[in-house]
């Protein structure tokens, strides 16, 4: 067991995966010689050489499309997209090609590729470098989407994504890269699709993921001072998502709050709320409440961004709303 940063855990996952399987390669802008814009791929070029660790031109569409063709020809490519906002440029390769190949070709071919991308605000990067667009990807049949919140999951979800035979999007919150946490010497596997109970409580269920997990945990501490014990569920995987764990928690607490940094409207929270309103209707003692960003682009100025992003106070208010 050692204390490492979130970005270092991903780095170690990449090293271990590339050591275990020579078909794993890395493609991305500035991932090789510069070691990645956030330093996540530092050292990989020296370890694995320029054939497997490749700096690409600024051609998001072509490198993601190339990953599809490489995956269909025996490699397991990992693509790094510098900011999730740039996933807009990769959408044909992801939505029309990677996601559909297995289905569309009658199961003849799978597309074992991983696309890593940082989302979220907190560094005043402005409207085109701060978005949380995960709901778009979770909406596409054939894609899997994971979003780790802890150092341990940053490692093991990355490993799980690489070994998966389907295209997996790994969303990393850029504000988490420097966060520290414990990583076991032989980390246990985290299967895609299983949530984690980050804190147990009997009074309300807060479902969240990524960087919002620590915010929700802070809200839970605050709530506990008022005698309200919240269950905090870290989804870890957004597509597929762990419906059973959320429903089991709702069955204990009878109150549900869903929190994400993405805009509230038409998001991951909307899907979970709709599903729980269906299968969990009899368990609900209050309307389901969502906490998300307002329906506007992420703003730049610190005062604006601080206001824009959900915080513990907003989560506390949402939980209290379900108790009133």
């Amino acid at each position: 067991m050692s204390e490492v940063r979130f970005g270092q855990a991903i780095n170690r996952a990449l090293i271990d995966a590339m050591t275990a399987d020579p078909s794993v390669i890395l493609l991305g802008e500035d991932v090789a010689r510069p070691g990645g814009p956030f330093g996540v791929t530092r050292g990989l070029l020296d370890k694995f050489g320029p054939e497997r660790v490749r700096d690409t031109p600024i051609s998001e569409a072509a490198i993601t499309g190339a990953a599809v063709g490489a995956a269909m020809t025996g490699l397991r490519p990992i693509v790094e997209i510098m900011f999730m906002d740039f996933v807009t440029l990769t959408m044909d390769a992801l939505v029309n090609q990677a996601a559909k190949a297995r289905f569309m070709f009658g199961g003849q071919s799978s597309v074992p590729m991983v696309v890593r991308m940082p989302h979220g605000g907190g560094i005043n990067a402005g409207p085109q470098h701060s978005q949380c667009l995960e709901a778009w990807l979770a909406h596409v049949p054939g894609l899997k989407v994971v979003c780790p919140a802890t150092v341990a999951d940053a490692y093991s979800l990355t490993r799980a994504a690489i070994v998966d035979d389907d295209p997996v999007i790994v969303i990393e919150h850029k504000a988490l890269y420097a966060a520290k946490g414990e990583l076991a010497d032989s980390p246990t596997a985290t299967p895609i699709g299983r949530a984690r109970i980050a804190r147990e409580g009997r009074d309300a269920t807060i479902v969240t993921y990524g960087a919002m997990v620590s915010v929700a945990l802070a809200a839970a501490v605050e709530l506990a001072q008022d005698g309200v014990e919240a269950d905090v569920i870290d989804l870890r995987s957004l597509q597929p998502w762990d419906e059973a764990t959320v429903l089991a928690s709702l069955t204990r607490t009878h109150r549900l709050i869903i929190c994400h940094e993405a805009v509230e409207a038409f998001g991951i929270g909307a899907e979970i709320a709709a599903r729980m309103a269906d299968v969990g209707f009899d368990e609900l003692d209050a309307p389901i409440v969502r906490v998300g960003a307002p329906f506007m682009p992420p703003p730049f100025a610190k005062t604006l961004e601080d206001w824009y992003r959900p915080d513990a106070a907003k989560i506390v208010a949402a939980v209290k709303k379900t108790m009133s």
């Binding site: 390669i25 072509a62 499309g65 020809t73 490699l75 490519p77 029309n96």
Partner: peptide
């Protein structure tokens, strides 16, 4: 859309 797929397939041929 076939162009980058062929480019990636060619990359796999070269590396493998």
């Amino acid at each position: 859309a076939g162009l980058p797929i062929a480019v990636g397939s060619a990359l796999a041929h070269k590396l493998r």
